[in-house]
Simulated scan of single mutants.
Amino acid sequence: MEILKIEIKNENKILSKLEEDIKNLGGNYDYNPIWQSIWWNLMLQKTGYIKKWFFIWIYEKNELKNYILIEKRSIWAGFYALFVLGWPANIYKINELKDELVNLWKEENTVYIQIEPLENDIIFEWFKDIKLKIFIEKCTVLIDLEKSEQEILAWMKQKWRYNIKIAEKNDVKIEKALNNEKNLNIFYDLLKETNSRDNFNINSLSYFKNFLNYLYENDLWWLYFAKKWDKVIAAWIFVFYEKTAAYYYGASTSDNNFRKYMATYLLQWEMILEAKKRWCTLYDFLWITCEDDKKSHLIWVSDFKLKLSQNVKKWPKSQIYINKKAIFILFYFKNFLKKFLK
């Protein structure tokens, strides 16, 4: 058994080989999290949202058995934390990887480590359940793409099927957008319009520019438009990674003269069909309000997603390892005050 660690700085032949090995390993799983892929890490580096990336992996007889990708992010006034999203995918030598992760905080001098796990039975010693920033919302809606089109439609609420027909009847067109500044601005203007309606946080325009540039260059996912009379009335970004397709970002007009055409419903349906063509086995709507959370910022979108499927998946709670208790307490109190004063 060989355990190795590197800091990810740029694309090279070693990383290409590791990404290929990750894909081969992920082929054994039903759910493929994009957050534990090398290309996702490299894309975020280009957006400037992270300070460093690290990759720790285990090989045995020249075969990748398990791995972990770690983000180092700024949290407050020169202090940093380590974040691990969508890990672990399996439990092979899990404690050895956990020990390497804990050792990393000493080298990087971080305040805490936060893991957002996807396995319900993984509980690490010394890690605590403390609610801080959530990167992966704890509930999502999934569609089994191995079902037939008729079966998927049957699982949808009748209102969804009806709204798809309204969009088709009114000649709403769905098209893949070219990656250029004009289309980026169309998407971002619609996103700001959606934000003013539904009140959620959005990333900067420069983030989406770097984001889309990297994804188009690597043929990873795309921006799609829904149009009526050549006017873009909805614009969404979808990802197709291994066996999992995901609806990642969405924006739509607030003009009721166009909302009545139900373009977003047809856009989702066309992407479900596209995912089936790409041999994906799961379609992930990426996050809804959990049943016990009445104050979630996702309430506005949850009803929309639950009309497509009632297959709700709940991920485990975050786990946090505190390295610098005094600084962590100050940081936690600052966040509490910020939420209280909103």
Rank of each mutant, 00 (worst) to 15 (best):
N257D: 09
G26E: 14
I56M: 01
I8K: 06
I272S: 06
V239Q: 11
F304G: 10
N41K: 14
K243N: 08
A251K: 11
I174R: 08
W155H: 14
N323K: 10
I56C: 04
W76S: 10
S206V: 13
T47F: 05
T244M: 04
E274P: 00
L97W: 02
W105C: 13
F340W: 10
Y241P: 00
F208W: 02
I6F: 08
Q310G: 11
A81Q: 12
Y224G: 00
I6S: 12
L15S: 06
Y31E: 07
L341Q: 13
W40M: 12
Y80D: 12
E19A: 04
M262E: 12
A275K: 01
K131F: 08
D255V: 13
Y214R: 02
S148F: 01
D293G: 08
S318A: 09
E181C: 00
L223T: 01
I136S: 11
L82A: 07
P33G: 03
L212V: 03
K5N: 11
L308K: 13
L64K: 02
G250H: 06
K98E: 13
F135V: 03
I320W: 04
D99Y: 12
W87H: 02
K51R: 11
Y224I: 01
I14S: 11
N185H: 06
F211E: 05
K228H: 12
I327S: 03
N183R: 02
I322F: 06
I8A: 05
F331I: 04
E107Y: 10
K165V: 11
A77E: 12
R197K: 14
K61F: 09
P117G: 07
Y29L: 14
Y248V: 13
E11Q: 14
V172T: 02
F336E: 02
P88V: 03
K182D: 14
I299E: 13
A326K: 15
L308W: 14
I130S: 07
Q114D: 06
F135H: 10
T264E: 11
K325C: 04
K295S: 10
N24K: 15
E274K: 09
Q114L: 05
K260P: 08
V301S: 14
D255C: 10
L18H: 13
N90S: 05
W221A: 13
C290N: 10
P316Y: 00
C290M: 01
Q268S: 08
I299D: 10
K314Q: 14
T47K: 09
Y247C: 09
W287D: 07
K338V: 05
N66K: 00
I233L: 08
E107H: 09
